[in-house]
Amino acid sequence: MRISTLFSIVFIFLGFGTALGQEREKLFDSNVPISMKMSFSIKELKAKTNDSTYMDTEIAVESAPGSWETYPFEVRTRGNFRLQNCFYPPMRIKLKKDDAKGTIFQGNRNLKLVLPCSKSKTADNFLGKEYLAYQLFEQVTEYTFETRLVKVELTNLDDKKAEPVTLLGILIEDDDEVAKRFKGEIVNKKIPPNIMEDYATVRHDLFQLMIGNTDWSGLYQHNQKVMVIGEKTIIPLAYDFDMTGLVNPPYAQVNSAVGIERVTDRMYRGFCRDKSIFEVVRAEFLEKEPAIFQTIEDTKGYFSDTDAKAARAFVKEFYDILKNDKLFQLKVVDSCRKLDGTYSF
């Protein structure tokens, strides 16, 4: 074989391989759950990792039916409440750049992984409803963390039988990657909510009312990131929706300082804005009502029929507020927080 012909064949082969790499599905391009396999000691994970310390593990991903690819991930615990109170801790998983190249994880090699809290047979239901909350937020605003469901076959090496269990999980986009998508930057310092972009902030705050979430703080960035786009546009990014009325897990708690008794009791925690801004965003939510309820239908396969019915009823209560001028004035406009953090009522 002539050398020039050999080089041509090699070039074509490499080009074909590159093309395949370019056509490979990106992590958040699909809503179809990814199948994964993980094996490690949960006790060791909790005892030996923290915000800065990882441990090595391997994660196998089903790239095609019956075909698995194994990646050398690093994993650590993250979070506070669920870390201390749940059997399965929330995690951060990380893949080296060279290992991620040409794979589904290219461009998203640092990820949060959320698993159910408990070993209960119904625990996946609550995870499915938390995923619903992320999907609903995507209907409300473009400024969201991208997510994808995973079905994790997890072997806990603490178990003498080492029998794998299958869990529903959520992969959540890294802070820096969402900022990169919007050509912005994540800011890790106190930002007074009144200087955040008005409409984006009210959309965020009304969404939190819709799902019944009081477990967040704009000022202290609790379950919220702040992204700066350009020189002045400051955007809130919400995450961690388990402690909400929509999800309503058994471990749900309400901060006594908030003033409600149950997570299913709604309370508007946004700061005051001009009423015209409230009305514009109110109209947006009303226009998106069909899409909101369709999203519940699209995701109801990940939780029980009873939970789907409860989710529809809970969101309907929110829309009952929006559709009633007096209720909207009372529950939102007159209930907003002043700059000193106190409430208007």
Results as ranks from 00 to 15, higher is better:
residue 1 M to I: 11
residue 2 R to V: 04
residue 4 S to M: 06
residue 9 I to D: 11
residue 14 L to P: 06
residue 14 L to Y: 06
residue 16 F to A: 04
residue 18 T to A: 11
residue 20 L to C: 06
residue 26 K to P: 00
residue 27 L to C: 02
residue 27 L to I: 06
residue 30 S to P: 03
residue 32 V to S: 08
residue 32 V to T: 10
residue 33 P to Y: 04
residue 34 I to P: 00
residue 36 M to C: 09
residue 37 K to D: 06
residue 40 F to W: 07
residue 43 K to N: 01
residue 44 E to T: 05
residue 47 A to R: 14
residue 48 K to T: 09
residue 52 S to R: 12
residue 54 Y to H: 08
residue 57 T to Y: 00
residue 57 T to I: 03
residue 57 T to S: 09
residue 58 E to I: 04
residue 59 I to H: 03
residue 66 G to N: 07
residue 67 S to R: 13
residue 68 W to K: 07
residue 70 T to F: 08
residue 71 Y to A: 05
residue 74 E to G: 04
residue 80 N to Q: 13
residue 87 F to V: 04
residue 89 P to T: 04
residue 94 K to G: 00
residue 101 K to C: 05
residue 104 I to K: 06
residue 110 N to C: 03
residue 116 P to A: 05
residue 120 S to D: 06
residue 121 K to A: 01
residue 123 A to V: 01
residue 125 N to Y: 05
residue 127 L to C: 01
residue 130 E to T: 00
residue 132 L to E: 00
residue 134 Y to L: 02
residue 142 E to D: 11
residue 142 E to H: 01
residue 153 E to V: 12
residue 153 E to N: 15
residue 157 L to Q: 14
residue 159 D to Q: 15
residue 159 D to Y: 15
residue 162 A to Y: 15
residue 164 P to Q: 13
residue 165 V to W: 09
residue 167 L to R: 15
residue 170 I to M: 06
residue 178 V to Y: 15
residue 179 A to M: 15
residue 182 F to S: 12
residue 186 I to Y: 14
residue 187 V to T: 11
residue 189 K to H: 13
residue 189 K to W: 09
residue 190 K to C: 12
residue 191 I to K: 09
residue 192 P to N: 11
residue 197 E to Q: 14
residue 199 Y to D: 07
residue 201 T to I: 00
residue 202 V to Q: 01
residue 203 R to P: 03
residue 206 L to N: 07
residue 210 M to L: 10
residue 213 N to T: 05
residue 217 S to W: 07
residue 226 V to L: 14
residue 228 V to N: 08
residue 239 Y to C: 14
residue 245 G to Y: 07
residue 250 P to D: 04
residue 253 Q to H: 06
residue 258 V to R: 09
residue 262 R to Q: 08
residue 267 M to E: 09
residue 267 M to V: 03
residue 268 Y to G: 02
residue 269 R to K: 09
residue 272 C to R: 11
residue 273 R to F: 04
residue 276 S to W: 04
residue 277 I to G: 00
residue 281 V to C: 01
residue 286 L to W: 14
residue 286 L to T: 10
residue 289 E to S: 06
residue 293 F to N: 08
residue 296 I to Q: 05
residue 305 D to N: 12
residue 305 D to G: 01
residue 308 A to L: 11
residue 311 A to N: 06
residue 313 A to P: 13
residue 316 K to T: 15
residue 316 K to A: 15
residue 316 K to Y: 10
residue 317 E to H: 13
residue 320 D to V: 12
residue 320 D to W: 11
residue 320 D to A: 10
residue 323 K to M: 15
residue 325 D to Q: 08
residue 325 D to T: 02
residue 326 K to I: 08
residue 327 L to F: 07
residue 331 K to A: 14
residue 332 V to M: 02
residue 338 K to M: 08
residue 338 K to L: 13
residue 339 L to A: 11
residue 339 L to Q: 12
residue 344 S to D: 14
